[in-house]
Design a protein around this nucleic acid. Structure first.
Lengths: 234, 234
DNA sequence: CTAAGCCATTTTGTATACAAATTGTATGAT
DNA sequence: ATCATACAATTTGTATACAAAATGGCTTAG
């Protein structure tokens, strides 16, 4: 593939998305136009256009005369997130089960294989990206332009939250999550919208419970400095 | 106010949004960069950036090497729309009732006054914009960054659909809609989340029923060329 | 020592010029 | 007559140069 400026712009878009999702650049980080344009071999004009596109997707935020920053992950975010996520994701999986094309189901299975491989590999960022890709694919299946923008926004922060709360330890949730993915695939393949929607809500319940434990560990059973116990049943 | 280039850019953003919402530029219309840059006194660089921002908001769609078009309103759109709209809007009004600030409620009342004035005025585009503004304000009240992008996308197409289906005749639905707005304000002011959510769903049921009548008039009672009867009860 | 204001530096925004890709048209071969 | 191909014209994408705004540090008055 030739290394034209158009290629480098696409490279930049993909690279910055990955960096944001994996928190290689943390929320709120300043994005310097000159620095980025030098790193990716682009002039500022196409770079600024790319930043606008990323802003539209929710990766970055633009402030007039003050440049671009990685989207914040504020203190109200978690609450907002778990309010919206089950509803949106339930609807998405419901539609995915209804509208999925055979070719899309094949791709979803491949994405799931990649996710399990990433779990085995142990690289946290690779896990988050593979998981993100799996869910993004269900979003494509749903094929509803009105749900897509919010769903994609949710996926961005889900990846980042995962990096924050799941990042530094080995738990069994990832495997539970992978099992839920398999169940989702089965429900989608069977065209079972109700099951798919229920699985979506279970999936978020798992995340929510895990994160609630992290943010507010059980004061009765938990001692300072002790590792946070993993979730065995919901 | 001085007429600097920054001002003209903001002018362009506002003007194009209004044109899309009112179908002054129809769905699918080609947006020529040179023509627009001349009309608004901007060079192509800031104009292209503005188009990216509008793409992120859902007003236009960008195709590589093929420029910008006004977002399509395809044949699957209506179905997608009425699948997502009640859910999203119900959630938005529920949150609005929970989180609304007094100052926001005042603004909402003003927006509602403007909407009733637009109804009296009879200008269809003015109605659509006033209605859009009212609903956008409820979106602000909800203050949930994960619902906002989809909600805004819905509002865009709601305005355009309204222009298509409500555009050319005088019905009583507008007044019913205005009454529903008043009920929404009351529910929000009372902090009654359940009522607000229910009102949201009623509001869409009204739209859906009206549009269903337009697209597929009752074959038993309807004769060719006869005006389509208005909706008296749901 | 503090604080306010001014100037230099840095960063963001815009305009123009140039390069690349796409589209439409005309010409010629089958 | 139809299709393919080449070429011109249009349109999109990028690079560089310039203008405007914001930031930071300095001086100086209180």
């Amino acid at each position: 593939m030739v290394d034209t400026a158009r290629t480098r712009k696409a490279t930049f878009l993909g690279a910055l998305r990955a960096r944001v999702l994996t928190q290689a650049v943390p929320p709120g980080a300043d994005l310097d136009e000159v620095m980025l344009s030098e790193e990716f071999g682009l002039s500022r004009t196409p770079l600024r256009e790319a930043l606008r596109e990323l802003a539209g997707e929710g990766y970055v935020e633009l402030t007039p005369n003050r440049g671009a920053r990685v989207s914040e992950l504020g203190h109200t975010t978690l609450r907002d997130f778990f309010l919206a996520a089950p509803m949106i994701y339930g609807a998405v999986l419901r539609l995915a089960a209804t509208h999925a094309q055979p070719s899309q189901i094949s791709e979803l299975k491949l994405a799931q294989q990649a996710f399990r491989a990433a779990l085995a590999g142990g690289d946290v960022a690779a896990r988050a990206l593979a998981n993100n890709r799996f869910h993004a694919m269900t979003g494509d299946m749903a094929a509803n332009i009105y749900l897509r923008p919010s769903f994609n926004r949710l996926l961005i922060d889900h990846a980042r939250i995962s990096m924050t709360f799941y990042g530094d330890d080995q738990h069994e949730e990832p495997n539970q999550a992978a099992d839920q993915h398999d169940a989702m695939i089965a429900a989608i393949e069977a065209g079972d919208a109700d099951s798919a929607a229920a699985l979506a809500e279970d999936h978020w319940a798992l995340s929510r419970h895990r994160i609630a434990q992290f943010v507010m560990p059980d004061p009765l059973s938990q001692r300072l400095g002790e590792p946070i116990p993993s979730v065995r049943s919901l």
